[in-house]
Design a protein around this nucleic acid. Structure first.
Length: 498
RNA sequence: GCGGCGUUGGUCUAGCGGUAGGAUUUAGGCUUCCCAAGCCUGAUGCGCGGGUUCGAUUCCCGCACGCCGCACCA
């Protein structure tokens, strides 16, 4: 899809609606997302770096996540290890369930999911947990052949999506975590012993997870190494109707079941109709939906899709995916899973450690509701939403509060003391805000460059600054200019960036 | 992983069996000064490996990566 000549400057309107390619083109040109180790040939797919702007953007997202979710709900923040011993993932179920039974055609090397393949042929459910030889038996008795080359299939084996690592000289078997939360779960006993924590309580963690995808595509949307911002809420299943969750009752969730259009439904009504199991879950669904709304995504483009039994992860009792409509369709940003007491029960049994905590005078094994947020996908969704092309320019209409660089400071000309003055103003701003200074090229060029980077406000220092002490602030989306006294600039900006 | 198509500076592209030209970007300079103006100078490229050939960016094979379809996405 070569759409040439207008990629660099955005001077001509594009004939088609901008899509994933355009957003990623801008993102790589402007230093949001970069392919990892791209200077080396044959670097495997699925690994991405955050460039200068991308790093600021991620930091902004995390800052807002901490403010609007973590701090608002008074969660406990953790940063746990990425490498965990095999036993942890045996208990969590990942060693057994995170692997798929596959069969490879010995002739053309096509790879199939064995259970799915047999299901298709015999038209009844086939569990994915059978011993491998039973799959081979089923393949043989149903005469299942490779759909590509008609070769008979046999030799079922397991493909585990976890990255295996060897610890120390003995290479003791361990894995990179496929989700950040297991590190939280295994710390629960000591946390409750030492940190004076009461139920219900959220535990929040930002970190990397690793999944050895068979064939990652869609770039930043499906990585082998990626950031998750996870929240694990531990609660007593007997006490989910606390008054603190009432703030959510009048809020409208945009819920859809299956692939139908979502409908707005108040939390209170969703609970009474059984769409949402209880007040606690309603409250956290409210927290997550309103978070994405506050980042600038429109409510009608956000849906909480209730997952069917087939779609849910092996540990999940109730599950909603928070999805956002982008140019690549509905994109899953957050998995909201009611994990019940599955994880803590498994870890308690495997580690022979007591995972119960005291609540309401009784020992309880906490249940868990999680919000598992994909950071890279969220950032992509924000860029996709903000991407604008008009007759004269390409720009990112990011909300000021999510913009990676919040303000640019420019001298109108590179002479007559303007650069020194502009530099002094920049120096006043740069510690409290993410600011950039630029004196190269014409002022229009600098505006255009900052528009494409999504900078919401540009401050220009001109002759009036020298005489009157005022600066001109130019707003990205409207191109409107305001004259602001230099000494009020910081406050002026801060009210508009909050 | 299978099938199809593709891969030329950061980006978009022209082109050829005799190792590449433009636009934009970018660095430095001049000039101009409120929305990508102009001029000068410079920088950056044929995805990787192998084969054919006197010579390969060009032809062939393999690989990697990308896109589309299939499969996969705990």
């Amino acid at each position: 899809m070569a759409e040439n000549a207008n990629q660099n400057k955005g001077l001509q309107p594009q004939a088609r609606a901008p899509g994933y390619e355009d957003v990623m083109n801008l993102a790589s040109r402007r230093g949001y997302f970069l392919r990892s180790a791209d200077s080396y040939p044959n670097t495997p797919a699925g690994f991405w770096d955050y460039g200068p702007l991308g790093t600021l953007f991620k930091n902004r997202y995390v800052e807002l996540w901490r403010r609007m979710i973590v701090k608002r709900d008074e969660m406990v923040e953790l940063d746990t290890s990425e490498v965990l011993p095999r036993a942890v993932f045996v208990a969590s179920g990942h060693v057994g369930n995170f692997s798929d039974p596959i069969v490879e055609c010995s002739n053309c090397h096509s790879i199939y999911r064995v259970d799915k393949l047999i299901e298709e042929k015999v038209r009844r459910a086939v569990p994915e947990g059978l011993p491998d030889i039973e799959y081979d038996a089923l393949l043989a008795e149903n005469n299942i052949v490779c759909s590509n080359c008609k070769n008979a299939l046999k030799g079922t084996r397991r493909f585990n999506m976890m990255f295996r690592v060897g610890i120390g000289p003995q290479g003791e078997e361990a894995y990179l975590r496929p989700e950040t939360c297991q590190g939280i779960f295994v710390d629960i006993p000591v946390l409750f012993k030492t940190q004076r924590i009461k139920l219900p309580r959220g535990f929040a963690q930002l970190g990397k997870s690793f999944r050895n995808e068979i064939a990652p595509r869609q770039g930043i949307l499906r990585q082998r190494e990626f950031y998750q911002a996870e929240v694990e809420v531990l609660f007593n299943p007997e006490r989910v109707d606390l008054p603190r969750f009432d703030v959510a009752l009048e809020y409208s969730l945009n819920i859809s079941a299956g692939d139908v259009e979502p409908t707005l439904i108040k939390v209170s009504e969703a609970i009474s109709r059984g769409v949402v199991p209880n007040k606690l879950i309603g409250y956290y669904l409210y927290l997550i939906q309103s978070f994405y709304e506050s980042l600038g995504l429109r409510t009608e483009r956000i849906r909480l899709r209730s997952l069917t039994r087939q779609e849910k992860a092996f540990y999940s009792a109730v599950a909603f995916d928070l999805e956002v409509k982008t140019s690549v369709g509905w994109l899953e940003l957050v998995a909201c899973n009611y994990r019940s007491d599955y994880d803590l029960r498994q870890h308690a049994e495997a580690s022979k450690t007591d995972f119960t905590v005291e609540d309401d005078g009784k020992k309880v094994l906490p249940h868990i509701f999680e919000l598992s947020m994909g950071v890279g996908r969220s950032l992509y969704a924000l860029l996709d939403e903000a991407y604008r092309v008009d007759d004269t320019r390409t720009y990112l209409a990011l909300l000021p509060r999510v913009a990676p660089i919040q303000v640019g400071v420019f001298p109108l000309m590179s002479k007559e003391g303007l650069p020194e003055k502009a530099r002094a103003i920049y120096d006043l701003l740069r510690y409290d805000l993410d600011a950039m200074y630029d004196e190269t090229g014409s002022i229009g060029r600098r505006y255009a460059r900052s528009d494409e980077a999504g900078i919401p406000f540009c401050v220009t220092v001109d002759q009036e600054t020298m005489k009157q002490g005022t600066v001109t602030v130019r707003e990205r989306d409207s191109k409107m200019q305001s004259v602001v006294p230099a000494e009020q600039l910081q406050a002026w900006l801060k009210t508009r960036l909050s």
